[in-house]
Design a protein around this nucleic acid. Structure first.
Lengths: 341, 341
DNA sequence: TTGAAAGCGCTAACAT
DNA sequence: ATGTTAGCGCTTTCAA
């Protein structure tokens, strides 16, 4: 059995309060007493019981991170960043997976009793929508990521989807491209990353005086390589002419690039390609993929910081009286796939 | 403030024991009483306090997973599998990252107080070695993954590296290849995945009567795409002749494939390529990458099951008196990169 | 400067 | 079938 405060107190010949004082670096402890206690702590290899401490304090030092799936590279890299940011705040991260856009599971996650020993939650929904905004009315600190829900009763951290997508498209236009295909649109969807990024794409076209063309929009169901490749193949097969492709995320762009190469089209000579996300693998494809860094690390750091602040602020009121929205900076990263030819 | 057992008991006009009985589906509760209690539970929205329960029971329902980094696809996919397996056992997973082979951090992780509210740990070291085997003598349930340490005092789950690598090489030989390069060896290393897989490669050559050739071994420092591409480029630049490449993991193989294509070599016509790991992305490269599925899902499931068993068995003795080793089944997955030409 | 003691919310042994 | 009660190990008044 592990040593407790009582064991240490008994060995040092003091009360548990004194041991507790020493453990917490309380100032008013006589030096000799402190030393005696410290020796006992070392001798018994005493470690405070975090569960007991949590029961008293109501804090566990654990935050939850609910995301779709770690197999999706974007979320794996996001989780990496969140864990690192949490570590700097002496917090530890418990990860729950909600699946690829499973609305029901996402809603259920918000009341998951497994989150009980968590001080707060960073939540990245993929299936919920604006209609579900009331579900965010939870009694614990919550920070929401992404662009499924805006204006909720909780803090929100997200990227500048529209502006970043516009910048990516402008990057293509700047290299002289005019027939710019976009891969990854969601049929009839008006919320979420797909809709916002598509809107940014349209704005860039409009600003440049390039007419919009429905045949240049590639629709997909999911944002995986396969879908990107299939949408691209369909467009090629339909005889659509284009000189550039904007993949609404890197994975789609990589899939599209594969389809282009299969069809004998050279990247970037015949077709320039740009993605979105700045995944690790965008740096290693052939050719390397130009993309947009949407500020993933900043998103993680902001989310953890804001959550930690709400936790520290205590249960004054949850949801908070002053929910805030945070937007991260983005940057376009030019690589081989959009190099001038 | 959240409702407690006492609140429910008061409202229902019973003792907390009765409420507890209802919560735990204890049989001997009069139907009318049960219903009254249940109504009170609903009315007060009572949720058992897991921290308090943990303090009593000594269990938290949380297991730790310590791995190098989620940004490394293999570990992201492993974590995904572990979380899913844990969920089936009603366990939740807390993830700690130790970095890319940082021995010190790995050793420190084993005594990390942040793991206190964890019932046990699944540990995937990348920097520790056989010399550190004594460090695994911890006082909590521990399952070790990988091939850095064998014969330790704890349960161990790993893949059949040698046999799987031999099978991958034989797959290449079966398609008529004789000059088989291998990418990813670690200079002077005798333990770990690299050494084991290299040994499997050699065995396959020996069995087929193909002479070993040092010039066909590509050394790298890390197992990333970049290293695979660089090692491949060096070999091509040195004028080494080969008709196949075995990447000691998928990432290396994908990097090597990029270098081959840069050099104008066709895959699989000029050079066949096979990897190791069966990452998601191996299914989407151009050409799709043949690989070995080392049984990642089985590793995760076994690790969680064994850990859960040790936890349930209780603190009879940790380390266990009968540490066991588990080996998973593997399978070679033939895709385009090794298709017959 | 140090100690005594009351809980945090729950489980489980014991009692009725 | 239901109630009483003693802790789990810690923090935190309140006293001394």
């Amino acid at each position: 059995m592990a040593a407790t405060l009582h064991d240490v107190a008994a060995l040092a010949g003091v009360s548990i309060k004194t041991v507790s004082n020493v453990v917490h670096d309380y100032q008013h402890v006589r030096a000799s007493t402190r030393e005696r206690v410290q020796r006992a702590i070392v001798e018994l290899d005493y470690k405070p019981n975090i569960t007991a401490r949590s029961l008293r304090s109501g804090r566990t030092g654990v935050i939850g991170l609910a995301l779709p799936e770690l197999s999706l590279s974007y979320f794996a890299e996001l989780a990496d960043a969140v864990i690192q940011a949490a570590e700097r705040q002496s917090l530890v991260v418990l990860i729950e997976q909600t699946g690829r856009g499973d609305r029901e599971r996402e809603i259920a996650m918000l009341t998951n009793p497994r989150l009980q020993l968590t001080d707060g939650l960073i939540f990245s929904p993929l299936g919920m929508s604006q209609d579900d905004v009331d579900r965010l009315n939870v009694r614990y600190p919550l920070v929401v990521l992404g662009e499924r829900i805006f204006g909720g009763p909780v803090d929100h951290v997200t990227m500048r989807n529209e502006e970043a997508a516009q910048a990516a498209t402008e990057h293509l236009i700047r290299t002289g491209r005019r027939r710019i295909a976009v891969i990854g649109a969601h049929e009839g969807e008006v919320i979420g990353s797909a809709a916002l990024r598509l809107e940014g794409y349209h704005r860039a076209l409009d600003a440049a005086g390039i007419p919009r063309s429905e045949e240049l929009v590639g629709y997909v169901i999911e944002w995986h390589r396969l879908n990107g490749a299939e949408a691209m193949r369909r467009m090629i097969a339909a005889g659509v002419e284009f000189d550039a492709v904007f993949g609404l995320n890197d994975t789609l762009a990589l899939g599209a690039m594969r389809a282009l190469q299969e069809a004998g089209l050279r990247v970037p000579q015949d077709v320039a390609v740009i993605g979105f996300d700045d995944l690790d693998e965008a740096r290693y494809s052939l050719p390397t993929l130009s993309t947009v860094d949407p500020g993933r690390v900043e998103i993680a750091e902001t989310a953890v910081r804001v959550l930690a602040e709400r936790i520290t602020a205590g249960a004054t009121s949850t949801p908070p009286a002053d929910p805030r929205a945070y937007l991260t900076d983005f940057s376009v990263i030019g690589r081989e796939s959009t190099a001038s030819v």
